[in-house]
Amino acid sequence: MTDESIAVPATPSPDELAERLTEVFDLVGPLYRRVHRKVEEAAPTEGLSVGVRAVLDLLRTRGPMTVPHMGRAQALSRQFVQRMVNDAARQGLVESIANPAHRRSPLIRLTDPGRDAIGAVRAREHALLRRVDGDLTMPDIDACLRVLGAMHALFEDVDVD
């Protein structure tokens, strides 16, 4: 038995959907730039740039990867990722290991200090994100991830190199 007082939202037209998705872009860009600045503010304390942080977190979640694979996964140029890997290696946060699948493209993996560094950064970020207001629910977050995932898929074919 259904409650007829609950309105089921109508499927939006393509134009209505595009207009609302534009609002998402309008929020995502400034949000990204503010988060970027916040990470940069902490860089002197933690010694990690935004790019190195991204590399370390990717290796934390996916394990050892080649620089080209990291670039594709992050929609960043291979050259930029290589510079970030070089920075991380100079700090002793990552190391190159042999890649059985490709002799000329080594795998990059976290070192113990790299694991510790990204763990500390994520703990600080987690503490900050716990302060988000808005009575958000897990279904809200699931919907957000679904929308952003669909938008990401739309631009998946854009070459970043």
Rank of each mutant, 00 (worst) to 15 (best):
M1C: 09
D3L: 07
E4R: 05
E4L: 03
E4A: 05
E4Y: 04
I6F: 10
I6K: 07
A7P: 04
P9T: 08
P9R: 08
A10L: 13
P12M: 13
P14S: 10
D15S: 12
A18R: 11
L21N: 05
L21C: 03
T22S: 09
T22Y: 09
T22Q: 07
T22R: 09
V24D: 14
F25Y: 12
F25L: 10
F25I: 05
L27E: 15
P30S: 14
P30V: 09
R33P: 00
R33C: 04
R33H: 10
H36P: 00
H36W: 14
V39D: 03
V39G: 02
E40A: 09
E40D: 13
E40C: 02
E41I: 09
A42H: 07
A43V: 07
T45D: 14
V50R: 05
V52E: 15
R53H: 06
A54Y: 02
V55D: 12
L56H: 13
D57Y: 12
D57C: 04
D57V: 02
G63Y: 15
M65H: 11
T66W: 04
V67I: 15
P68H: 04
R72V: 03
A73F: 00
Q74M: 13
L76M: 14
L76I: 02
F80A: 13
V81S: 09
Q82G: 10
M84Q: 14
M84A: 13
V85C: 03
V85Y: 05
A89I: 00
R90I: 04
V94A: 06
V94K: 01
E95Y: 03
I97R: 08
I97Q: 11
A98E: 15
A101E: 13
A101I: 00
H102K: 11
H102L: 08
R103W: 07
R104Y: 09
R104M: 11
S105Q: 11
L107P: 00
L107S: 01
R109M: 08
R109P: 04
R109S: 06
L110I: 02
P113M: 09
G114P: 01
R115F: 05
I118L: 00
I118E: 08
V121W: 01
V121M: 08
R122V: 06
R122E: 14
R122D: 10
A123L: 07
A127G: 06
A127R: 08
L129Y: 15
G134V: 01
D135T: 07
D135S: 14
D135H: 14
L136P: 02
T137F: 05
I141D: 12
L145I: 11
L145E: 15
R146D: 15
R146M: 12
L148T: 04
L148E: 06
G149V: 12
G149F: 12
M151H: 15
E156L: 10
D157E: 11
D159W: 05
V160T: 14
D161R: 07
